[in-house]
Amino acid sequence: MRQACLNAVYELARADDRVVFIGSDLGVGTLAAFRKEFPERFVMEGVSEANVLGMAAGLAMEGHIVYVNTLAVFLTRRAFEQAAIDIALHNLNVRLIGNGGGLVYAPLGPTHMAIEDVALMRAVPNMAIVAPADAREMQRIMPLVHAQEGPVYIRLAKGNDPIVTSEDEPLAFGRPVCCRSGADALILSTGITLRIALEAAELLAREGAEAGIAHCPTLKPLDRDALAHAMQPVPAVVSIEEHVLSGGLGSIAAEVIAETPWRRPKRFKRLGLPDAYPSRYGSQADLLKFYGLTPEHLAEAVLSLRDNTGSG
């Protein structure tokens, strides 16, 4: 997915001479073709995220569309004020490409795991957030990101994630993608949790339960009416995200559910990371399992809500 994103930046740079790329001490050879073709628009800075975001703001004020890439935690935690004040306050065309959203950097520990990046960026006025499910969706969403007015935070997954999205699904910035319908429940996913949702829906189908899926590759802005519309026919909603439960997809869903006048109340459950820094190493898959972000657990959560719907 990261490669798809950076390839897209290169292609965008070929088509649009306003594009500038700034990295913060990235891996050797990153975007080598971009650097060779447009050396003046390729900037590799040191480990200095505050300065990198400020520079990006200065370039964007001059009319550039600036793509900044480094680890998600450093873009969102380390340089939060620069993201907010230099970039978002001025509604500048800076795109923050965050490597390792969620538990990707599990072996590297809590300093490198971006478990609250969505909440941080979501709280910043003018900041848009995208979290695609796979490389295909990343490739499809990048032209939409490029066309946005104002800053965008792009949450990257691990890379080599299975391709689970389809070219045929309509994709619009700020709109959920309803990729499966089902009368018993609606699963909300974002980022790589779409794969978990799809697998859970298959498990549920085997149990005779039909779960729909509304996937949110854009978390902000997010068309709340479209989300409410997707929730409308079902009695139960379960959200799943690779992020703390506060401030991300589950919070968005809770807000929509709480503020929509339903004829019958919804049963609702959020799956995500607890209010704690991860205390284990291992792989992203290990930690997803540890925190119950699995198809099996998601399917259980859906069945539990469905089975309790009548009594609620």
């Binding site: 003046e40 004020m61 001059e62 004040i85 230099d86 306050l89």
Partner: peptide, 25 residues
Amino acid sequence: VETSTGSLGHGLSAGLGMALHARMA
């Protein structure tokens, strides 16, 4: 006023971006 300031330590980076642009252009 080119960029909002008030929180300290932001202006030189923004100016650096503007200076880079001037050189590119």
